[in-house]
Design a protein around this nucleic acid. Structure first.
Lengths: 130, 130
DNA sequence: ATTAAATTTATACTAAGTCTAAATACTATT
DNA sequence: AATAGTATTTAGACTTAGTATAAATTTAAT
């Protein structure tokens, strides 16, 4: 665990991810950086995303698609994906502690963390006329 | 929805996945088929796995690794991954319905399904001496 | 037997990400 | 300020997992 070292590139990428309302992939992040006048090497973007993730400044989301997405929100939270339009929203309710305890007891694991991805249909897709 | 068509290849792959205690990747499935004397084309294995998944006979697990894993258990269940050794176990307790209702209410989604992956440390890794 | 449809095969291709070696940028010490 | 040492960036080759395609084969239906 060494000291945090935010280079120009890492800072720009952190700022960008934090400013996003959505959850961009690495490719989308590169595209948005380019639109802001930044032109970083391919590998630098991946390296920086990993660095920032390891440092706990951003989160990597693996939602079952081929590419990871990134999230500037670092609080513990989950996601819900719309099957119809692909939209991803935040889920702020945590799974009940009672359930986690039950899982730990039944599996004999120390449970550190859980990733939850809900799938369903979002409000807009339910009401396409509105 | 057409009728189920289990070709020789699909049957062999289904049998193999159902006989597994673990959750093999496509590459591991190919390897195990080869050891049993089957030699199917690369693409056939992927096609068959998708076919069997779509037919609901097996499940595709996306546990956040680079490759999908496959599971012969079709009942609704979840998984727990050991951070130390990578081992994957089944979790049979479902998330409480109350929590799902809360999530649906807060997000305005119709929630159809949830994928849950727990991370932690398994019994063997906790007690390495035993 | 003949045609049509579905499936398998071999192989080319794609997407997402890692690895490597050289170039560049920082840091600390004198 | 010069030097040495470490860290980072860059460009591009490479890897892995999976998809796409077109020809060959199998299966099913007349």
């Amino acid at each position: 665990m060494s000291r945090l070292n935010l280079t120009t590139q890492r800072k720009a990428i952190l700022d960008l991810v934090q400013s996003c309302e959505d959850h961009p992939t690495a490719a989308e992040i590169m595209e948005r950086l380019r639109m802001k006048g930044h032109q970083f090497a391919y590998g630098t973007v991946y390296n920086s995303l990993r660095y920032l993730t390891d440092a706990g400044l951003i989160r990597e989301l693996k939602l079952g698609e081929t590419a990871s997405r990134y999230d500037g929100r670092t609080e513990d939270h989950y996601h819900i994906v719309c099957k119809k339009c692909g939209r991803v929203d935040e889920v702020l309710s945590a799974p009940p502690a009672e359930w986690i305890r039950e899982v730990a007891a039944k599996t004999n694991y120390d449970v550190h963390h859980s990733q939850v991805v809900f799938e369903g249909v979002c409000y807009s897709c339910k009401h396409p006329n509105a």
